[in-house]
Write a protein that binds this DNA or RNA. Structure first.
Length: 576
DNA sequence: GCCGTTTTCGGCCCGACTGTTTTCAGTCG
């Protein structure tokens, strides 16, 4: 699929156009890029089957952009983009990813200081050169440096959501080889950590060389770091590293256990084994020279007298002790959600209609969803005011009558203002089935003020769910300073539900928060925060996060059928 | 550059904040 490649180019062209001060075109390019990224159909296939005319039928793509796409498919590049790059050969994407750097600054940085990438920018900032730019003082320079530090902290790791589809595909390829007996991802990927460094894939086969050769023939890579008899390390085209190891079937389970980690988990496991007179290695569990387990992971844990430990729990945070006492949580299974309580549509900043989102949710096995478009204060999303919300409610009534097999609840994602008040009147909130509230502005308030702000919001009898509670964006924005303990207490007291937002950049609540919340008896939901039909499958990352937080099915409200779910929401007649 | 039961031309998303200014440009959401 060339969709993402073309989308990337369009995003960059949008940035260049914005640098030039061109009006409206940047948005057109961005819209088209987003459509390409999320539409699910292969653009190359559309072009092959329906030509340029087919391209122009896609919403947001007209004659000019269709030409660009055609040019890219034929030549692998877009001349206009190359011209931009020639004039300003800078790493637009990287520079823009620094908080506080926008297109205009990228241009000025290049023209005045010849800054072409983040390293140049860091050097210039440290040397105090940024202060020579217009409207630049010590404070802005400091902010830029902080932005760079934050960006670099997350470097080398990709979000799980980004690499997931590729790894899934590569594992599928390995499994499809006739010499493969078994294949599975290992490492932090298998533990479903929110970001992943290197990806480990384990293969069971008698013919390691052939597995490696055939893998290399079918997977696009940029560079091979190393290639041995049973292992190959490479940098995939998408910019992350993959290690493929081939082992015999008899020790596949032991190897999978070993390479899944975490390191801390394995250290504890082995130490425990030594105490029992056993030895655990990647080749099996041994009693003296005799291997007593190794073909499956279940066998390995069993041989040590433990319950099987799900990969998401293997962080040495008490799971080994719990497994020995047979007291591991019965973590929420994948695929056990029945509803999704945060979905945006084309009424605000979503890409698709209410009906399209409902149909996709149904196809994904859900039986209810809440439409929660943004509200007034988020002007950029064309947020709903009371009038627009009321008209959307009527629209939902109509669609509910028209479709079957799924129920659409009326909802909203209302903004928690700086003082903790909401940007929609109580009168209209009372008419909604589900109200989510969230912070979208003033992220950097002092802890005490921020906590009181959120507390005031969740004390509203109308607020059912606190959406993405900490406001963090992985590798981009730190979580708000919040007294989580107090948030949990007030949530419990008021019956407010906390969201586990499954969007790959958010995953908010974080795993550690989830565990705390569960211990305190706070109820949670897992939502996709979908802005396009393709995003609904993000729910699996929310479930993964919940599992990492030891959450069970009973802790997650949207595992319940619709009537039980709605009945368990906040009692609106009570004030707090 | 895109789009159209308001328009094939003339609209497109805008308010708040920040850091820098002394009236506002750039960035963010």
């Amino acid at each position: 699929m060339k969709n993402t490649e073309i989308a990337d180019l369009f995003f960059r062209m949008a940035a260049y156009l914005e640098m030039e001060g061109v009006a409206f075109k940047p948005q057109a390019y961005e819209r088209a890029a987003m459509t390409l990224e999320t539409m699910g159909r292969d653009i190359e296939e559309i072009y092959r089957e329906e030509g340029k005319k087919g391209l122009m039928e896609i919403q947001g793509i007209g004659a000019s952009l269709a030409d660009h796409i055609e040019e890219f498919l034929k030549t692998g590049t877009i001349k206009e983009y190359e011209a931009f790059r020639k004039r300003m050969p800078v790493d637009v994407e990287e520079l823009l990813s620094v908080e506080g750097v926008g297109p205009k600054l990228v241009k000025e940085l290049w023209e005045k200081l010849r800054v072409a990438n983040v390293d140049d920018l860091e050097r210039a900032a440290k040397e105090g050169k940024l202060q020579k730019l217009s409207r630049f003082g010590a404070k802005r320079e400091q902010n830029i440096l902080q932005g760079i530090t934050f960006l670099k902290k997350g470097q080398g790791r990709k979000t799980l959501g980004f690499i997931y589809p590729y790894v899934e595909e590569y594992v599928r390829i390995l499994k499809s080889l006739d010499i493969t007996e078994e294949a599975a991802p290992a490492g932090s990927f298998r533990r479903m950590k929110e970001t992943v460094g290197d990806v480990d894939i384990l293969v069971a086969s008698k013919n390691a060389q052939q597995v490696i050769d055939q893998f290399l023939a079918r997977v696009p890579y940029l560079k091979i770091w190393g290639k041995g008899d049973t292992k190959v390390s490479l940098r995939a085209k998408q910019g992350f590293n993959i290690d493929v190891r081939v082992v015999p079937m008899e020790t596949f389970g032991a190897a999978l256990q070993y390479f899944t980690g975490s390191k801390e988990h394995n250290v504890r496991l082995r130490a425990y084994a030594v105490g029992k007179g056993l030895k655990v290695s990647e080749y099996g569990v041994f009693k003296g020279n005799r291997r007593i387990a190794g073909q499956t992971e279940q066998e390995v844990y069993e041989a040590l007298g433990m319950q099987y430990i799900e990969p998401e729990l293997r962080e040495d945070t008490g799971e080994i002790e719990a497994a020995l006492q047979r007291k591991l949580p019965d973590v929420i299974p994948y695929g056990s959600l029945r509803g999704d309580l945060q979905i945006q549509t084309d009424w605000t900043d979503g890409a698709h209609s209410i009906e399209d989102m409902a149909k996709e949710a149904k196809a994904q096995g859900l039986s209810y969803i809440a439409i929660t478009d943004h509200t007034r204060d988020l002007a950029m999303t064309n947020g709903c005011d009371e009038k627009k919300l009321l008209s959307q409610m009527r629209e939902i009534d109509k669609i509910n009558k028209k479709i079957s097999g799924i129920t659409i609840l009326k909802g909203a994602e209302v903004n928690i203002r700086k003082d903790g008040s909401l940007d929609i009147s109580d009168e209209v909130l009372a008419k909604l089935d589900v109200v989510g509230a969230s912070v979208h502005s003033h992220f950097r308030m002092p802890k005490k003020e921020m906590t009181e702000r959120v507390v005031r919001a969740i004390r509203s009898p109308h607020v059912d769910i606190l959406f993405h509670p900490t406001g963090r964006l992985i590798q981009k924005r730190e979580a708000c300073e919040l007294d989580m303990d107090r948030i949990f207490k007030v949530a419990k007291e008021t019956g407010t539900v906390l969201e586990i937002n499954a969007y790959p950049d958010r995953l908010d609540l974080r795993d550690a928060d989830i565990r705390q919340a569960k211990q305190q008896g706070v109820r949670m939901v897992i939502d996709s925060d979908a802005h396009a039909v393709d995003h609904i499958k993000f729910l699996r990352f929310g479930i993964a996060q919940a599992r990492r937080g030891w959450a069970e099915k009973k802790d997650i409200l949207n595992t319940k059928p619709l009537h039980e779910f709605t009945a368990s929401l906040k009692d609106k007649t009570k004030a707090f």
